[in-house]
Design a protein around this nucleic acid. Structure first.
Lengths: 200, 200
DNA sequence: TCTAAATATGAACATCGTTCATTTTATTCT
DNA sequence: AGAATAAAATGAACGATGTTCATATTTAGA
């Protein structure tokens, strides 16, 4: 039998992350409370701080899992739509769908900020980079002339643009686009990007 | 002599907004504290709540002023660059410049969220709409076929895209684009938008 | 000047995240 | 197995924070 210590430790840690994930998905990042989590996980308040540096560290764990979920739906989208332009359109729609189906988890990705002077850990940056690579893959087919560096930049810019459109469309601050026209608006927008990106 | 009451009231209100604006610009939205403001403004803690419903209402005032500042630099950008495509490029660069020069004020615009169920007041939505109209103006020259409704949607989408690129470029979560290449990357991106938007 | 309404005040409250001395539990050693 | 040691869990306490409200003060009108 292996360490009973690290066993229980890992079990609790995993449980807390799952609970935080559920709570964020159901009521948003701002509803996350140390006391609620501890009570629901069945440990003392201070116990959380044995598992995580602080609440921010816990949020990073949850957000990394959300990123993995997004990567999953994006991977499926690419696989199901062979020609490169269709793949990029499918990626945009997959991103929009995820944002719509899991709005609070998705918003938590961008709402959350580490306190001044603290940088995101490398493992988190890498999962972002990994997501960008999903976009770079079909874009490389469309623009074989791009060097790896340029390709990475363009993929990131394309993601940023689509994210911006999705983000502002789902933001209730801005006067609404009817939700059902959003799909077609995004479709048209990706067409603009594709035409502009390939027509030299 | 007019009401001495509303005179002092307005003076204090204005003073508090200005102080909040300065604090956000210097140390970010999260550094805003009721007690700090009250002390600096020379009034009691409770006095803030005679002037503003709550801190969120104060932040809306500050953000509306930031939007007005952005509108100002955008208006100048349009005026200085007659041909429509140059105007749109100038708008994007003006937006990027503002975000770079006033990063914390700019970020506060999007970081801030009203509590669940509370909508932004109409006067705030209108200042957003006003900003979108600045973009619609040159876009209308480029695409005279757009109906007012479509034009509004496309202007908003174009803003969203540029905002997304600026936003993610300035976000330290993502592996950086060297800051000096951001200008040219944005320039190229707007070109893509323009080509894609006009090439049917 | 005197009265009534408006306004300013700041102590008190409720809620947070976080810490740390203490207790409990698990592992290691003899 | 039993004692010694190390690790982990505990939760009361602390410091910040936004907000409220009974009270004191100031202003406007008669």
């Amino acid at each position: 039998m292996t360490d009973k210590r690290s066993e229980k430790r890992d079990a609790l840690r995993t449980k807390i992350i799952a609970l935080a994930q559920k709570r964020i998905a159901a009521h948003g990042l701002s509803s996350l409370r140390a006391r609620d989590l501890a009570a629901e996980a069945g440990c003392a308040l201070g116990g959380l701080y044995n598992m995580f540096e602080d609440i921010d560290a816990l949020v990073l764990e949850v957000n990394a899992r959300t990123l993995a979920d997004i990567d999953h739906v994006m991977t499926r989208a690419v696989q199901a739509n062979p020609p490169a332009p269709q793949q990029l359109k499918a990626l945009a729609h997959a991103y929009l769908s995820f944002a719509r189906e899991h709005p609070l988890s998705w918003r938590a990705l961008f709402e959350h900020h580490l306190p001044e002077g603290r940088d995101v850990p490398d493992w988190y940056s890498e999962s972002l980079t990994h997501l960008m690579a999903r976009i770079a893959q079909p874009l490389a087919l469309l623009r074989p002339d791009y060097t790896p560096d340029v390709l990475a930049k363009r993929a990131r810019t394309m993601f940023a643009a689509v994210h911006g459109v999705v983000s502002i469309s789902l933001d209730n601050r801005f006067v609404g686009l009817a939700p059902d026209t959003l799909d077609s608006e995004l479709e048209r927008f990706v067409d603009v990007l594709l035409v502009g990106s390939t027509h030299h």
